[in-house]
Design a protein around this nucleic acid. Structure first.
Lengths: 292, 292
DNA sequence: CTCTTGAATTCAATTATTTTGAACATTTAT
DNA sequence: ATAAATGTTCAAAATAATTGAATTCAAGAG
């Protein structure tokens, strides 16, 4: 059974004539005859009675009309609904670095949902070391990460923005207001996020270069807890500026006046290099980009 | 778009692999690739993202699944529902002679509807001269007629039964109880049905052969009115026995003891010679046949 | 890091299928 | 009766689908 056959069948039923249907459809008459014969054979019954010059639908033919129309309708629907994603729908699986998740992402998603309502978002936290693999395996459609600059030829970068990383402490901390460099950090506990966080490596390298060894470390799994510790005077936190804006505003944290090396990091958006960039993805990238 | 393509598409989505789908479906891999490429081209979008070794459904692909399943489901339904008419449905357009309509047909249809419930009946009166045309044009599926024997090579006769035709009069009519022949009719008005009724011709031929000219005629369009007239003593009615059973039983009409020529008539069932004899038709013929 | 394996694509060759056109059979209309 | 219209048949031509070998690329194994 083919959609073509059913469509021919309907034209015949509509026009009550094989030859008229052939004309309408741009076929030779014999083509129409053949197509119907095939259908009849497949279904094991006659669809039309050929009464000399006129044809009449058999009961089965009569019944088939409804089904054939459904089938053609379905085909039309597919063309309309599936075509290009003029109006994107579906679910977008995105992976986000924790830092971004508390700063940039909420507003971006808010805006995105307003602009592109058809899309459902599934958001997961990702870490520096696992996200390329997840993109590779198709578990994620897109990753929005905050990291030292990344280039990976298995990935396509859709967005890149330089971000800043600073030291923060509670307002009554001794270092507040001073111009500080690497060596000044030696005397205070450093607050860091977990082991696989890329910022940690950057800081350690820098400190090592200056011959400084951190006095003590407190590691937490979450930047939220880390900020909590810092604002309680437990030590100096090394975190992206974007994650501290709220605390700076309400006065629970102060940004230290760092004069040491700068730490170049970027917020970046990646997809698999062979990924088709749907409108859904594109819009998200635009929303995040316009945010800046 | 073909049903085949959609079915291949579904197998791939199900197994998450082109090659596995090819195996399942008995295709070469390249066939699967080609089919999907065609679908993708027709729909103007990618259905799968090919991420190196793994493939992932795009949002459009995800959406297509539901439609493709609907389509295959529909195809299965068609096969089940249309196949042969194991359980006949539809509407049967039948034409019936008026005489039969008041005698044989009611019981037959009653029985038929009980035995073959799926069929709707559309019944129309037919006359001797128009029914072959109506069968020819497919306006009727079947005709049940009461007539002198008919043979027509454009028609197939599915049933034939000899019927009897007699003269009837009111119980107090002078001819009741006598043995009568053609000449006895000369003195009484003859009650006949309308012009195109075939019985009229038969009777007139017979009378002419015997040198009798009917004294006067009363024509009516309906046998019911005709019987009414006869039972009121207006004359002698020439009608099929089957149409008079009720009146004979309740005593309003008496059958005359005819000793003249016999009038051979038949109840017959005809369809167009090329008509496919469906179970619906066949059952109806059987019901009418068993009625005898 | 290289080699192998697994997966999908490409493309030319082969097969099937669809479509056509001409000859035919039948029916309807003039 | 004759012509026009309708559907069927069948072989040939056109088109489409399928395959198999070669190829590319990525993931895993040694």
């Amino acid at each position: 059974m083919t959609i073509t056959q059913l469509s021919t069948f309907l034209k015949i039923a509509e026009q009550n004539s094989f030859s008229a249907a052939a004309d309408s459809l741009g076929y030779a008459q014999s083509t129409v005859t053949t197509q119907i014969k095939q259908l009849e054979e497949e279904l094991g019954c006659q669809l039309f009675d050929r009464l000399g010059k006129t044809i009449v639908l058999t009961p089965q033919g009569e019944k088939l009309i409804a089904y054939a129309e459904k089938m053609l309708q379905l085909e039309r629907e597919i063309h309309l609904e599936i075509s290009d994603d003029d109006e994107p729908t579906g679910v977008l699986k995105i992976g986000v670095s924790e830092s971004l998740c508390y700063s940039r992402v909420p507003e971006a998603l808010m805006k995105y949902r307003k602009e592109v309502p058809g899309i459902d978002i599934r958001l997961v936290f990702i870490t520096h070391d696992t996200f390329p693999d997840m993109l590779q395996k198709g578990e994620l459609d897109l990753v929005y990460t905050l990291n030292p600059y990344i280039e990976d030829d298995r990935l396509t970068m859709l967005y890149k923005k330089k971000e800043t990383l600073s030291f923060y402490a509670s307002p009554d901390h001794p270092l507040v207001g001073k111009r500080i460099k690497e060596k000044d950090l030696a005397d205070y506990p450093l607050l860091l996020t977990e082991h696989n966080c890329s910022f940690r490596h950057m800081l350690f390298e820098d400190l090592a270069k200056c011959g400084v060894e951190a006095k003590s470390l407190i590691e937490t799994s979450s930047k939220e807890i880390l900020k909590q510790f810092a604002s309680n005077g437990l030590g100096v936190a090394f975190i992206p500026d974007m994650t501290a804006t709220r605390e700076v505003e309400n006065g629970s944290l102060k940004r230290l006046d760092w004069r040491g090396s700068s730490f170049p990091i970027y917020s970046q958006i990646f997809v698999h290099k062979d990924k088709h960039i749907s409108k859904a993805i594109n819009s998200l990238v635009e929303v995040i980009g316009s945010d800046a």
